[in-house]
Amino acid sequence: MLFEKLIRPALYRLNRDDPETVHERTVRALSLLPAQPPLLRDFYAADDPATVFGLRFPNRVGLAAGMDKDGRALHAWPSLGFGFVEVGTVTRLAQPGNPKPRLFTLAANDAVVNRMGFNNSGADALARRLADGGKPAVPLGISIGKSKVVPLDDAVDDYRHSLRALYPYADYFAVNVSSPNTPGLRELQDKNALAELLGELQRTSAELAVTPTPLLVKVAPDLTDTALAELLEVCDAHGVAGVIATNTTLSRDGLTGPEAALGKETGGLSGRPLAARAREVVRFVHEHTEGRLPIIGVGGVLSGADARALLDAGASLVQVYTGFALRGPGLIREINRTLAGWR
């Protein structure tokens, strides 16, 4: 494909040791793309509608959070075949993220290690951009997280501010309590902390709308079955609309060759080595909830077959990030055409 054979190699030759610069230039270039060029949309997309947690999706393939944190290229993603877009993770306070370098490509392993640390311009800035530029032509999810400088004891108010600021624009919210790159964040997956957070966010949502916006929880792949079962009980008790499975992993299982040394960099691992565990978590959630809780499957999707395996495990939708970064939009076309014939 053109992206894989010419464009991506050229970008990496220009910035061989700086994949974050490649990422930034990609998002900047896409932000200049006119909204919904018909030829692009017809080439990459597929007519495969699905209704999940009350929302109508034109197809089952979404852009995962992290690629377009600040929503700068919102109108481009549907043109590349995505049936929904998740921006963020955004925090109440603007923050630069962790020191660079913080993004490492392990191309031979189809993997990435990142310790970005929720670098973003803040919830209020994203709200202004959405007010000025409008939403994409597909459902918009907004991932919200905790500001790094905010103590865990104040996390509820921190999340609640972002929810309020962005409520007019989100078709669903993803509550990110599972990134490994914000110190202490994963403690919010614990039963009592998560119950308090979800309870307050649902109360705030009910105050803001007659029909509350769906609230999803993004889980870590590193949870034990017992911890994940407890988390699901909390989600059920607080009317969570769905689960996103999974975030990046602290495990380095599956890395091979010389890149295994680079894999020792701190941060979350995504891509091919996460695929099997992501399917396991999706299957566990599906079976534990007896299919009642919709799942967005994400992790290690680098082919149409990978996406289909997540749906076979129990997911209703899939998301792509690392696969798109490594393979380009041709991957989205392949996934759309594979899933259009699913079931």
Rank of each mutant, 00 (worst) to 15 (best):
329 P>D: 00
19 P>F: 11
63 L>Y: 04
16 R>A: 13
334 E>K: 06
198 L>R: 09
168 P>N: 01
254 G>C: 07
296 I>G: 02
186 R>G: 01
54 G>I: 09
137 A>H: 03
227 A>N: 03
90 V>Y: 09
144 I>D: 02
102 R>V: 07
37 P>Q: 08
79 S>D: 04
201 L>K: 13
288 H>Q: 15
308 R>S: 14
93 L>V: 14
183 P>M: 10
117 G>Q: 02
296 I>Y: 07
178 S>A: 14
213 T>K: 12
228 L>S: 00
178 S>I: 08
101 P>I: 10
63 L>V: 02
241 A>D: 01
270 S>F: 03
264 K>M: 12
136 P>T: 07
12 Y>H: 12
261 A>N: 05
203 R>H: 14
102 R>Y: 05
72 R>L: 15
54 G>S: 10
231 L>N: 01
262 L>K: 13
329 P>K: 00
341 G>P: 00
340 A>Q: 15
315 A>N: 05
243 V>G: 06
317 L>R: 10
216 L>Q: 04
42 D>E: 12
241 A>V: 06
39 L>I: 13
36 Q>W: 07
261 A>W: 01
64 A>E: 04
23 H>V: 02
222 D>M: 09
207 E>S: 14
127 A>E: 04
186 R>F: 03
230 E>C: 05
313 A>N: 00
199 G>Q: 06
127 A>H: 04
250 L>K: 12
271 G>S: 04
215 L>E: 04
55 L>F: 12
303 S>E: 02
327 R>Y: 05
241 A>G: 03
170 A>E: 10
162 S>W: 11
50 A>D: 03
309 A>W: 09
146 K>I: 00
171 D>T: 08
131 A>I: 01
121 S>C: 13
37 P>A: 10
50 A>Y: 01
132 D>E: 14
102 R>E: 04
147 S>D: 07
342 W>K: 02
227 A>P: 01
322 T>P: 02
65 A>H: 05
235 C>P: 06
214 P>F: 13
204 T>F: 01
264 K>G: 07
13 R>Y: 05
179 S>Y: 02
130 L>N: 10
100 K>F: 08
240 V>F: 08
39 L>V: 15
34 P>K: 13
135 K>Y: 02
74 L>Y: 04
125 A>F: 03
35 A>V: 10
109 N>S: 06
56 R>D: 13
228 L>A: 03
298 V>R: 06
279 R>G: 08
32 L>P: 01
243 V>F: 04
122 G>D: 11
281 V>H: 06
265 E>S: 11
75 H>W: 05
